[in-house]
Design a binder for these strands. Structure first.
Lengths: 198, 198
DNA sequence: GCTACTGTACCGAACGTTTGGTACACTCCA
DNA sequence: TGGAGTGTACCAAACGTTCGGTACAGTAGC
């Protein structure tokens, strides 16, 4: 096998995986049939089983791996650059808004975290969520928050993003998602209110 | 048909529906097969079609109707009673914590709001979510919040609950759900901070 | 009070279709 | 010429659904 063919394979396979992301997150694991997979990738069954001997489950696993990589390069990288914490959080938000199409696109993590198939992908889902949370928490720690509070607020960020997606889909309005995303950076960096003020 | 037999039928059918709630919210719409439905209800497949001529889709619809009724009697009723707003919100929270088993049980609304089957149940899901939001908003309006802000905070409550369920399932920890639920009543009633204080 | 009829609840078995997955011969390119 | 990749045909199993039929309670007519 030459270097070129290796590159070709990787290219084509990752492109197929990239197309599968949208299929799985639109229909869920059970709702995604081999017919839909074949149509989305333009590949026949035999080709699919050639690239993914493990079948449907391996495809979903590959999709999660791909998503984890996208998370690192697209979402977390901006967080780890230099600059004001507020600016870095806003950069992440722009990517989130684009990726989820203002909350109209379902979240694959949520689809696989809930439901029958949850056990199979629990490890991967948990890993991706933790990476995301920790990346946000580190920014908050840099902004002089206590590590414990930083972790809590980072979790809150994910909670609000995921919840906003559900509400956006359930109410067929992008308003909640946009509002949450707009407030998120300032909310995360909001100073702790001394209890004496209340 | 006698009165007794009517009552028998209604009883049995709603009991079947009650059992189906957990099946649908555990496996999702696509993941719920007629075999699982038959097992959960103790009825044969053909008997199910006697009660639900519309098949699987009618069963899911019935489950959503049942859930809407449960929401009104179990969650919203405490909100509409007399008493301090804070106490009423805490009463709702206790029911939520119990119903979702500390976030370990998936939310059927979320399962049906996302995914392939979303279009079929959009109307019902939207209606249930709106009822829930409006019930919370009314409590906040009674607590002297502006209607617009009350609606926003009520939406935030649902967002946080739904997001917390996802995170709880994704991370296999009930900690986020418990923390969110504990803070929720106070957060909802937290006075608006004059911008001059920041 | 007996009979015939009706409606409801339920079931086993089968329906046709789709599922995820396999076997194998073929092409293409190094 | 040999291995990677693909198209065709195929499989058993499961899918949601329908069929024909049984059991039984209630009702009406005689």
């Amino acid at each position: 096998m030459s270097i070129d063919s290796v590159h070709m394979n990787v290219m084509l396979k990752t492109e197929a995986i990239a197309r599968l992301v949208d299929v799985f997150r639109q229909y869920g694991y059970d709702g995604t049939s081999m017919a839909k997979i074949a149509e989305a990738t333009g590949l026949g069954k035999s080709s699919l089983y050639h690239h993914f001997p493990g079948g449907k489950e391996e495809m979903a696993t590959a999709v999660l791996d791909y998503l984890s990589q996208c998370l690192n390069t697209g979402l977390l990288a901006p967080l780890q650059q230099s600059g004001e914490p507020l600016d870095r959080l806003r950069a992440m938000n722009r990517n989130i808004d684009q990726y989820y199409n203002h909350g109209q696109k379902a979240c694959l993590l949520a689809m696989l975290a809930m439901g029958e198939s949850s056990d199979r992908f629990r490890t991967q889902v948990s890993h991706i969520l933790n990476s995301w949370i920790e990346a946000i928490a580190e920014v908050l720690i840099e902004a002089d928050f206590e590590p414990e509070l930083a972790r809590q607020r980072a979790e809150d960020a994910i909670i609000q993003i995921q919840g906003a997606i559900i509400l956006t889909q359930g109410l067929s309005t992008t308003a909640p998602f946009k509002r949450i995303l707009n407030h998120l950076p300032e909310t995360l960096l909001q100073p702790v209110i001394p209890s004496g003020l209340l």
